[in-house]
């Protein structure tokens, strides 16, 4: 591969930054999805319904 290259540290650091950054974004999206689903389920359990479930309106 490139074990003898004098710049191996820079190469591995670049891939580490990439994997960690994209991993954090993906992880945040997964956690956010679970959070929103839990909030929706909680509101529905309390009997709160959307004004319209016909779709087409984001806030409906």
């Amino acid at each position: 591969m490139f074990g003898s290259d004098p710049h191996t540290g820079f190469i591995l650091a670049s891939y580490a930054v990439t994997v960690i950054t994209l991993g954090l974004v993906a992880g945040w999206i997964v956690v956010d999805h679970r959070t929103q689903k839990a909030r929706l389920a909680d509101l529905e359990a309390r009997g709160v319904t959307r004004r319209s479930a016909r779709g087409g309106d984001l806030a409906s």
């Binding site: 956010d32 999805h33 929103q36 689903k37 909030r39 929706l40 509101l43 529905e44 309390r46 709160v48 319904t49 959307r50 004004r51 984001l58 806030a59 409906s60």
Partner: peptide
């Protein structure tokens, strides 16, 4: 989209 639905339902509540 789910966040906006939650917000709308919280306002109704």
């Amino acid at each position: 989209i789910l966040r906006r639905r939650v917000r709308a339902m919280q306002m109704v509540a």
